[in-house]
Design a protein around this nucleic acid. Sequence first.
DNA 1: GCGAAGCCTTGATGCAGATCAACTCGACCG
DNA 2: CGGTCGAGTTGATCTGCATCAAGGCTTCGC
Lengths: 248, 248
Amino acid sequence: MLKDAHDLIPRECDACPIRHRAVCARCDAQELEQLDQIKYYRSFEAGRTLIWAGDRMDFVGSVVSGIAMLTQTLEDGRTQMVGLLLPSDFVGRPGREKAAYNVVAVSDVVMCCFRKQPFENMMEKTPHIGQRLLEMTLDELDAAREWMLLLGRKTAREKIASFLAILGRRNAVLNMSKAAGQVVFDLPLTREAMADYLGLTLETVSRQISALKRDQVIHLEGKRHVTVPDFDRLLEEAGDDSDGGMLA
Amino acid sequence: MLKDAHDLIPRECDACPIRHRAVCARCDAQELEQLDQIKYYRSFEAGRTLIWAGDRMDFVGSVVSGIAMLTQTLEDGRTQMVGLLLPSDFVGRPGREKAAYNVVAVSDVVMCCFRKQPFENMMEKTPHIGQRLLEMTLDELDAAREWMLLLGRKTAREKIASFLAILGRRNAVLNMSKAAGQVVFDLPLTREAMADYLGLTLETVSRQISALKRDQVIHLEGKRHVTVPDFDRLLEEAGDDSDGGMLA
DNA sequence: GCGAAGCCTTGATGCAGATCAACTCGACCG
DNA sequence: CGGTCGAGTTGATCTGCATCAAGGCTTCGC
């Protein structure tokens, strides 16, 4: 299943798909050289837990390809997703000994790992890395705060619509959005993972997706392929403050 | 009411109560000098909204004294708190034009404001500021993720207990915790603000506090003064993973 | 081709927390 | 000192989502 994972591993940073969005985005050729000394690639197959909360961490790194999630659980098993990691997202916290969250591969994942101690040393001397990491962390904090509004105050239907809007927005940017307002994408998560993202049960997720389909807000082919005929309609359903959506 | 606010404004950074925890924590004397050129103090009375989401921001800054909250709202008025700002916490985002959240003074607040443009320029040249801001932002992100678990997966009782535990832990650190496990503090928020923090209604907050009192998990004098006779008991009620609590 | 397992959907029922409403208490003010 | 206003409590009722349960569809291994 992972037999061709090494095809996805860039030979050098110039060829790296996340070169200009990851922690290393601001680094110059010489700094990349240094990073190269302390990095290595790892591949994980879908479903595998890369890191358990509480584990000792000896690396930090970037997601190169695939999707992973950060989760927390209570003793009785209730699970909440607290981060969704896409290519270029950063994993781990410089200066921290132990992992604070579980990291689980949603799809097959390739990571570019940096040995932790050398990376921390390098951060001290190379402002470019810390600067970029600050930007990325601030973005994540903003995302976390949107997410808190969703978890604390939205109805199940609004939660689903919001989640679809997030995915749709992302794909609209990448795919240069199809004709007038029509947006198409695949759900990267199972119903259960969506439930953990949204603070719902998988049954409620399923029901609300069915309801949005019934009400023509979305169309579904199979269980994962979504078409949004009218994106503004979807945004209304998401209940967000009308304007706020597009501020980058 | 604010007549003596200027008494709370430090004359110089050395005398500043948040000198060693705020963004400026790592700055040396010369850097403080520079910051001094671009800073000014502002006072706000309890209840005032310091900043409206969408407002143009021409400063960033630190809370010197008092408590403020970040909130987001949906059009129909549902409100979620997304940040609780204590002395030394940072307000605003370098590089961002417009405020993303409302900032509301919970108590009287004094802020140390930096003019935004000069502050950003200084960040470019002074790694100490960016480094400290990164640390603080990472801490906030961790807090946000704990908060997401609370919002998404905890029951009303667990939410209240968790919130009390957070307050109690903070005060235990400051006040060198009273005799054996006993913790005492005042609630800084109204029932309504607590509800906005926890994603509940104020009625539910009130009922659950009453329930915890009835069950002897806490004692109340008046409506705000809380005594926790057995802190471990409170942590159990909070439902957290047993160990996780004390990792700083 | 058949059984098992994973993912998903749908139905029936129950309950935690929202909503609506009445009331208490203390602070402030003319 | 009576009136008002904001904060908090408590009760009655309603409802959205969780829970429990059954069954469908697809994929995979034998």
